[in-house]
Design a protein around this nucleic acid. Structure first.
Length: 276
DNA sequence: CACGAGACCTGTTCGC
DNA sequence: TGCGAACAGGTCTCGT
């Protein structure tokens, strides 16, 4: 489920209400339940309750694909990985089978980290930068310019697809939005980064921002049984559209595997680079 | 440095 | 219908 637009949508809803839930900011945490120990990366499970109880939610934000609950004085970071979700429900609701961590809040509310595949992780730390330090630039920030992207592309020969998925290169892109951005930019997913021209880099910069902003505007993409809410899946250009016509030229969309990830592209619009 | 494979997990869908 | 294989929005680690 969770790439930058989905994570942003969830963070906004938790901060200001939305998706049917009330805002969390200002509420104190009264109780913590860890139902799958490995979900908590830090601190040791035995320390969680005593440390988090009594802290208030000061703000809810996002960095890359991390959701940040700014407490006082700690920060709770949550990464949803493949199948995680955050839901606000009543404490009187039954605890769903895939809830891995729940926090009881003032007002009879429960914040639940639901994660069928158990890949998601939570960190309760004093300094969030310790966890976030390695992340690349935020693609929607003002200081992430086309020039900056071009400069970073020049520094490596890696293929574009795995490079854009690398969170240290740029934060927040996942399999969906990478395929969508490369198609919009007309770049082949196997193209070597340092062979992208400056005009191509500018087009890629514009495309990355456009697909992310579209995704946020649509409140993310809902696929299969995970995640619900957004409708960006109805506007996919290539992702999971193997064999269907490219929206630009009508050629059948192809699927290949690059870096162990399914990759969708138009063989005509995204011209095959020399030697592939 | 760059790449591939395997691990971590469960649920759904596809092919026979 | 049943059953195993393939596949899924992500990242980490290890070997070459």
């Amino acid at each position: 489920m969770p790439e930058l637009p989905e994570v942003e949508t969830i963070a906004r809803a938790l901060r200001q209400g939305g998706r049917g839930g009330p805002p969390l900011v200002g509420r104190h945490i009264q109780r913590a339940s860890l139902l799958w120990p490995r979900t908590l990366a830090e601190p040791a499970p035995a320390e969680l309750g005593a440390r988090i109880c009594g802290q208030a939610v000061v703000d809810v934000g996002r960095r890359g694909k991390f959701i940040l609950f700014q407490l006082d004085p700690d920060t709770l970071l949550i990464h949803l990985r493949m199948s995680g979700d955050l839901v606000v429900e009543a404490q009187s609701d039954p605890v769903a089978p895939h809830h891995r961590l729940t926090l009881d809040l003032e007002g009879g509310l429960r914040l639940a980290f639901n994660d069928p595949r158990k890949f998601g992780r939570a960190w309760l730390v004093r300094d969030p930068l310790r966890i976030l330090a390695g992340l690349g630039p935020e693609p929607l920030d003002a200081d992430f310019t086309a020039q900056e992207l071009y400069r970073r592309l020049q520094s490596t020969r890696r293929q574009l697809k795995p490079l854009l998925l690398d969170q240290t290169f740029i934060a927040g892109l996942g399999n969906i939005y990478t395929d969508e951005a490369l198609h919009k930019a007309g770049l082949h997913p196997m193209q070597a980064a340092n062979r992208v021209s400056q005009p191509q880099a500018e087009r890629l910069w514009e495309s990355i921002r456009a697909v992310l902003l579209d995704g946020i505007q649509r409140q993310g993409a809902s696929i299969d049984w995970v995640y619900r809410g957004g409708d960006f899946q109805n506007y996919f250009r290539v992702y999971q559209r193997t064999g269907l016509p490219c929206p630009v030229c009508g050629t059948a969309v192809e699927r290949v595997v690059i870096g162990q990830r399914g990759t969708h592209f138009c063989p005509v619009c995204q011209a095959c680079p020399e030697g592939e």
